[in-house]
Nucleic acid binder design. Structure first.
Lengths: 154, 154
DNA sequence: CATCATGTAACATATGAAGTTACATGATGC
DNA sequence: GCATCATGTAACTTCATATGTTACATGATG
């Protein structure tokens, strides 16, 4: 099954925006996200509607973060990109009259709901800021590794 | 997103088989599952490979359950139908060199794995027999309701 | 007013589940 | 033996949907 990567994609873009400090164009984001500017605008439009980001036209325009990253959870971002289907497995039909179907749907349906709840709970526990800090840690470690290699080569 | 309904579908078929007591043809199962005989064979083939069901050709042939329903969990059936993707949300790319991507994938990846583990755990806790008994309870209750209606109408 | 950037519609592509057709294989009953 | 029934499977079509692309309108900047 083709998996929806809008959340992953937009997070990538947001981290870039946090690091930038000035408006980032769709063109730049598209390059960072390895996609097309139109796709960027499409997915970012959802975030703008929720007041998470702001867009500006013309020279010096582009996308900026509208709220404090420490107050934005991944769950909120997930909803902003359209709250795509979480569980890729489903019923053959909803609202079935068949008793067999009801038994099956009940057994699976409870599991689906539980799984979705866990997913949202986990996303709700991570802020954009936490993600950005994690990235910075990786960056610092990466630089350290490079330096270590240089020293070792001396 | 179009959700994979093979698990739901095959459970429906298996409950029918349990009730039957004799080989059930793909044609009959297709009718019960509101689909096509070829689709039934396709999905049942996975169960046969795992030794869960048996198929017989010719007159009086069809599908029979090969193992005790009390020993078959929904998790096993899920794997037998090909272990389709559980989480409909994914990464833009696997094995990225980009550090931003790594941070994002790590944060989401942990959640995905947790969610999938919960899904399998829940399915592993339900046996086919439990599902069949649940159905029988519904059936009994349904019959009772019908009788009550008849008595009330007298 | 030329340029830059977003906004959006319309269309194209890709993937994968599900449905369908066609024919081969094998078992049963007469 | 052979007609019939049922599975086995390949090949194709259909459908939904995320993603990619093209084209053009709108609005801001210098």
């Amino acid at each position: 099954m083709m998996r929806d990567s809008r959340l992953s994609s937009v997070l990538h873009g947001l981290l870039h925006m946090i690091g930038a400090g000035e408006p980032v164009t769709s063109e730049q984001l598209a390059q960072a996200m390895a996609t097309n500017p139109v796709v960027v605008r499409r997915v970012m439009a959802g975030l703008r509607e929720q007041g998470l980001v702001h867009s500006e036209k013309g020279h010096g325009g582009g996308w900026t973060l509208e709220r404090d990253p420490a107050d934005i959870t991944l769950a909120e971002i997930y909803r902003a990109v359209g709250a795509p289907t979480i569980v890729a497995i489903g019923h053959r039909s909803e609202n079935p009259g068949c008793l067999v179907e009801q038994a099956v749907n009940d057994a699976l349906g409870d599991t689906f709901r539980e799984v979705e709840a866990l997913f949202l709970k986990r996303l709700g526990a991570v802020t954009l800021d936490a993600l950005a800090k994690d990235f910075k840690r990786r960056l610092a470690k990466h630089k350290q590794n490079l330096e270590d290699q240089i020293h070792a080569a001396k």
